[in-house]
Amino acid sequence: MTTKRKVGLGLGIYVGVIAIFLAIFGSGQKNDVYKPQNEFKLDAWFSIGPFDFTKATMYVLIAAILMCVTMVYVARRMQQRPNRVQTLVEVAFSLMRDNITKANMSSTEAAKWFPFVGALFLFIWFSNMLGYIPLPTNSEEKINVFGAHIPSFALYAATANLSIPLSLSLLVWIIYNAVGIKRKGPKGYILSFIPAGVPGFLTPFILGLELMSNFMRLISLSVRLFANILAGHLIILFMGGALVVLLGVEALGIVTFPLAVALFMFEVALVATLQAFIFATLTAIYLGGATADHH
């Protein structure tokens, strides 16, 4: 049998199974009660002064603890012949130090800023990865285990909440601008935005564009991370069952669930690391630009 016929046969069987399921379970009514966005809703668990402790705070805390424990544990057991975990940490360390930090600024500046850039990369990476581990954090839906109402398991990422990428972006934005101003002086720093070779009459226009571009970095840096992680989680949520629940078509699960698994793997294998890498790299580029002698 040729590959073409095999693929055709496979698709035929797949469509046939969907048709059978559709015939058995039929089409139910639309579910107006279930709100998928509530999976990301943050309820205050307790408050310390004006600051609420929410699910997102807990995820950030767990990610930070995991990051510190893993890195310190590995750092204290560094061997001349590394095991798999140490190899992974070393690869991440070299990526952060050499490919992200050193590649975008001078060696002196890289040595100075590596702890910040490296910590950012790891913090975002651990937060992203933690978002793909099902944890009992869904306070909307609860499971009754021998009378105890335990929150149901859910996929939630702290970075899928705008506050977290925004706070980190704001920190980066303030730091690199402050460093630039300190290094070149306020006037020198602002003038450093004007690219070399711009004709005099275009200078104000270009400067305005560059300053706006500088401000937009804050938004692009935070929204890129937030939107990617939120979109990934939403699509996994919808493919994993939310669409079936909302439309009331159970047979649709045959189509959507394999897609959910594939998307989950795609998010874990690529998006989580890629977004951390992009955030850290852009931070290093911005810091490198602010500390460089010329624009």
């Binding site: 609420d52 929410t54 510190c68 702890p115 980190l168």
Partner: peptide
């Protein structure tokens, strides 16, 4: 954006960065 979560994030990030800076890196 929630100010509380942003403050928590910066606090936790700052602490964990200090831990990494002192004990891991």
């Amino acid at each position: 954006p929630g100010i509380g979560l942003m403050v928590w994030t910066l606090l936790i990030f700052g602490t964990s960065m200090a831990v990494l800076y002192k004990l891991a890196f």
